[in-house]
Computed example of a mutant assay.
Amino acid sequence: MEASMEAARGSGAKHIILVHGACHGGWSWYKVASRLRSAAAELLGYHVAAPDLAASGVDGRRLSEVPTFRDYTGPLLDVLRSLPAGEKAVLVGHSLGGLSVALAAELFPEKVAAAVFLAAFMPDCVSPPSDVLLKNGARENYTPSDNEMKPQDADGKLPSSFMFGPQATEQMLYQLCSPEDLTLGKSLMRISSLFLEDLQIQPPFSKDHYGSVRKVYVVCKQDETIPEEYQRWMVTNNPVDEVMEIDGADHMAMLSTPDQVVKCIIDIAKRYS
């Protein structure tokens, strides 16, 4: 990725950075990333990256080596930090990746052309970042699943680990995906964390930084993990510049409806560059 990033910088390129959710990695964007990279005529000059966050994908760290959400998001922050002055990126966050995008926008607002939330947790500028995670779990119609969350250490210094269960993966994440992508997901997912302990003690993101960045929410209408009703509540709670929607998309929209996701990203890149 580093060599291609250098080549992109040399051409004065702009950037699209795809940010995965919990237990996943950059691999989950393989359909979208490949389609975006081949859309040269429509995305002239854009470089597409799908980095692995810490202890995710092929990143070599263990979860115990990633004590905070900022540490977890570090690879994304490093990419933004390395962009030359004046260059901006469209950040596309999926699921927990929405909070990583929000943190990146908080720290580097001048480098974010648009923050895109694809069936993602989107925080506001009033409550701790953990609030949108906790409210989703506290919904009246929340369906218990076989996801597993447990302590990493006896003294509670590390955030609890998290892993999607087989039933939740099949029925709430990948229910509209192909059998091949379901198999891929089950094979490549890693134990991760929601970092609730850390996110609960963090201050709200600021209006001057995160709040100043242009935002687009892409609603996935058949999502069973972050249902449409809750996605739209987050938009009402923290209004955005634009709302798009994809019908027929489950939580893993980048796998179940990749062409529609690509179209949304291209439209956003054109309008918000």
Rank of each mutant, 00 (worst) to 15 (best):
R9D: 15
R9W: 13
G10F: 12
S11T: 13
G12V: 09
G12S: 11
G12Y: 08
A13L: 04
A13I: 07
A13G: 15
K14I: 03
H15I: 02
I16T: 14
I16L: 15
I17D: 02
I17W: 08
L18A: 07
L18Q: 13
L18W: 08
V19E: 13
H20K: 14
G21D: 13
G21I: 08
G21Q: 12
A22T: 15
A22Y: 07
C23K: 05
H24L: 15
G25E: 08
G26K: 13
W27M: 06
W27D: 10
W27Q: 12
S28K: 01
S28W: 00
W29R: 05
W29M: 08
Y30S: 04
Y30N: 07
Y30C: 05
K31S: 03
K31E: 08
V32C: 10
V32E: 06
A33Q: 14
A33H: 03
A33S: 13
S34H: 04
S34T: 11
R35V: 02
R35M: 13
R35T: 09
R35W: 01
R35K: 14
R37N: 04
S38N: 05
A40Y: 00
E42T: 09
E42D: 12
L43P: 04
L43E: 05
L43Q: 09
L44G: 06
L44M: 03
L44D: 11
L44A: 12
L44N: 06
G45I: 06
G45V: 07
G45E: 01
G45L: 07
G45S: 06
G45H: 06
Y46N: 04
Y46D: 04
Y46K: 01
Y46S: 08
Y46Q: 02
H47C: 07
V48R: 03
A49H: 06
A49M: 11
D52C: 05
L53F: 04
A54W: 00
A54E: 00
A54V: 00
A55H: 07
A55N: 09
S56L: 02
G57R: 10
V58T: 14
V58K: 06
D59E: 04
D59W: 02
G60H: 12
R61S: 11
R62L: 13
L63M: 12
L63F: 07
S64F: 03
S64D: 13
S64P: 04
S64W: 07
S64I: 08
S64R: 07
E65M: 11
E65V: 12
V66E: 02
V66Y: 00
P67V: 10
P67C: 08
P67E: 09
P67N: 12
T68Y: 11
T68A: 05
R70Y: 00
D71L: 01
D71T: 14
D71F: 04
D71N: 10
D71I: 03
Y72L: 09
Y72K: 06
Y72R: 10
T73M: 12
T73L: 14
T73C: 15
G74W: 01
G74Q: 10
G74L: 02
G74T: 09
P75T: 01
L76S: 00
L76Q: 01
L76G: 03
L77V: 00
L77D: 00
L77P: 00
L77H: 02
D78Y: 00
D78H: 05
D78E: 15
D78T: 07
V79C: 06
R81M: 06
R81Y: 05
